[in-house]
């Protein structure tokens, strides 16, 4: 294929632009990582902090000394594991039922679900309901409201629909119950989609903090994201205090702050290669089948 001068010039410019773009995307994370490994003296120097000459794990040690971080981490892991499993089960069952044409009232059950994508009660009415159900300051509040999401059900349903009908028919002839067909045929055949949903829901749980902010008062029950936010906020106010009082002690050095951030990011970074593969697939499914 012959390329004009203009096209060649564009091609070189484009690659250059993309490399710059890529560096800009990764830089904030690189900066945080470098800061978390720097000594306090190095961290306050001017510059980009692309690397550090005296790496140290001191900040991580200090960050982990905070007694609340262990509990908060545990709460997050608990909600992620239990919440993902529960939400997956509920969503898949709902999706399977909706994927069957013979389901009585299928249209109604589908609309009940889809309407929740368009309209919701809002923060305060939801809060009042949660309060009425005695879920305030209860860790179940992390799991129950997120049991079903329209988007996940739609994706699972379209996949179930693509499974040949003859499999279902022959299983029925063999005397299998719907539950057996669901667990022995549909679930094993949908591994890829289920993996996508698992990662999707799990990342959502790992990153969630709003529920912890408004429904939980007990400091022993908050999630790690919110703990991070609280630490930042108190560092900010203490900084203002030290400016007002003329005290020169920095309460929360940027190094410890970075280390805590990295600790909260770690699990996502660890599963990022898998996320890549499966998340994308899910987006395509959603885009193609809507």
């Amino acid at each position: 294929m012959k390329r004009t001068k203009g096209e060649k010039f564009f091609s070189i410019f484009n690659i250059f632009f993309m490399i710059c773009f890529g560096i800009m995307c990764i830089y904030p994370f690189l900066y945080t990582l470098t800061m978390s490994l720097s000594t306090t003296a190095d961290s306050v120097k001017d510059g980009l902090h692309l690397f550090t000459l005296n790496p140290t794990l001191e900040s991580y040690k200090l960050a982990l000394e905070n007694e609340n971080i262990g509990i908060a981490y545990f709460n997050t892991i608990l909600r992620t594991v239990a919440g993902t499993f529960a939400a997956l089960a509920v969503s898949l069952l709902y999706a399977y039922a909706l994927s069957r044409n013979e389901l009585p009232g299928r249209k109604i059950f589908s609309n009940i679900l889809i309407f929740t994508m368009l309209f919701n009660g809002g923060t305060i009415p939801t809060y009042l309901v949660i309060k009425g159900l005695h879920l305030l300051d209860n860790r179940l509040v992390y799991i129950l409201p997120g049991l079903i999401s329209a988007y996940n059900v739609i994706i699972a349903r379209s996949f179930f629909k693509s499974i040949p009908e003859s499999l279902h028919e022959s299983a029925i002839l063999d005397g299998a119950s719907e539950f057996m067909i669901f667990t022995r045929i549909y679930v094993p055949l949908s591994k890829a989609v289920i993996m996508t949903l698992v990662l999707w829901i799990a990342v959502g749980h790992w990153n969630a903090w709003y529920d912890s902010l408004i429904y939980i008062n007990d400091e022993k029950k908050i999630v790690v994201q919110l703990l991070l936010k609280r630490m930042m906020d108190s560092a900010q106010t203490q900084m203002v205090d030290t400016i007002i009082t003329g005290d020169s002690i920095a309460i929360m050095p940027i190094t410890i702050r970075s280390a805590t951030t990295i600790i909260a990011m770690l699990p996502i970074l660890a599963i990022y290669p898998f996320i890549q593969k499966y998340f994308m697939g899910g987006v395509m499914l959603g885009a193609v089948k809507g």
């Binding site: 089960a89 509920v90 969503s91 069952l93 709902y94 399977y96 039922a97 909706l98 069957r100 013979e102 389901l103 009585p104 059950f109 009940i112 679900l113 929740t116 309209f119 919701n120 009660g121 809002g122 305060i124 009415p125 939801t126 009042l128 309901v129 159900l133 129950l144 409201p145 049991l147 079903i148 059900v153 719907e178 539950f179 669901f182």
Partner: peptide
Amino acid sequence: LLLFLLPGLIALILFNYLPMGG
């Protein structure tokens, strides 16, 4: 099949439709 819908329906009613009433 209707039984399959039940957990999801309960969650939808409690956490989506009750707040709409709120």
